[in-house]
Nucleic acid binder design. Structure first.
Lengths: 189, 189
DNA sequence: GTCTATATAGTGATAGAC
DNA sequence: GTCTATCACTATATAGAC
């Protein structure tokens, strides 16, 4: 999918370092060391540290935005829509766990693209909220505060990358099998 | 509870800034500016930036550790224990949302106290896991992968501070009323 | 308790050789 | 595509005056 150009190597290594220590704590020298080159050499491929961050985060955010647009208008039940959203988060986490971490933890360090990102994220949450409210109106979803349900689901889905990448963590197959039931039905027997 | 000494003012202002931009992105000059003093003056009250971080995070982690020790040995059902854990997270989030954010986002920047923190966190998760497994064994909790349920609950509880502090967010009363049902029963009607 | 001045080390980024 | 050398600036932290 993504060609293994030098630029992409730099960006994906950066995502890995940002995941572990955060954007601000990773220096261009750290990134260069991890690639066995000197910091100055990075600038033959990228324009700035900020550009790397924006590339990582905006790419992920647009992927979520595009998929949400597909899902929200489908002629399926609320529960089916929610299952598709859960699968979307699992798929993107499995594909790009490092970028998912940046998306969650380092978005506030965006500069030029910050407002664009914040709007995408607000729209995504609003679409999620609307789907939940439709479900409540139709009796599919419990009649509780939709904000609590939204926050509970999104918190879990957004931090999947922590548990997916940790040793003795959870694998993709188990996630896909059990995440929908856990979020929709809870943990009680 | 906490005396309003100059030192505590510095620490609580630091927690607020760390929450917004992260430990690494906040400079001693930023912190000093926020307190309307010069950076050098901070060092009359604290020894280092690192000391501020450790004070914030270790204090929170020990509070969680102590409460979990109380809860785990009580002669009550698994569901009652889980409700007490949920309440613990809500109470500490309401009391110290800024410190909760640091605990979640900046623990990896601990230096001397890092291993102490990591052990406390692992023990907390292990106690939570044991409680869930007991619940499964006794038929109180659904017979699914306990790791998924643990991760789903902890992800939600650990990021409460995001939703509690945001405008149009969720208030403490609603959280206490609806969080247990949402996590235990899910969102399905 | 705060200040000015400063030490020491790092920061992102550029210029120009190979 | 990578290097060495370097610029301009910023970081944490200390010394000592008031």
């Amino acid at each position: 999918m993504l060609k293994t150009t030098r630029k992409n190597e730099i960006i994906s290594k950066a995502a890995k370092l940002f995941k572990k220590r955060g954007y601000s704590a990773v220096t261009m020298r750290d990134l260069a060391d991890a690639l066995n080159i000197k910091a100055a050499s990075l600038y033959n491929h990228i324009n700035s540290k900020q550009e790397i961050l924006a590339t990582i985060i905006i790419g992920m955010a647009e992927a979520f935005t595009n998929e949400m647009e597909q899902i929200k208008n489908q002629p399926i039940s609320t529960q089916e829509k929610l299952k598709k959203i859960i699968e979307l988060h699992i798929d993107l986490t499995v594909k790009s766990p490092d970028a998912m971490a940046c998306l969650n933890n380092d978005w506030m360090h965006l500069e030029e693209k910050l407002s664009y990102f914040v709007k995408m994220r607000a729209d995504y949450e609003e679409n999620f909220r609307i789907i939940l409210k439709e479900g409540i109106a139709q009796g599919e979803i419990a009649d509780r505060d939709p904000e609590i349900m939204l926050f509970s689901m999104l918190s879990t889905l957004r931090t999947l990358y922590i548990w997916y990448t940790k040793k003795d963590g959870v694998d993709a197959k188990t996630l896909k099998e059990q995440m929908p039931a856990t979020l929709l039905n809870g943990i009680r027997n």
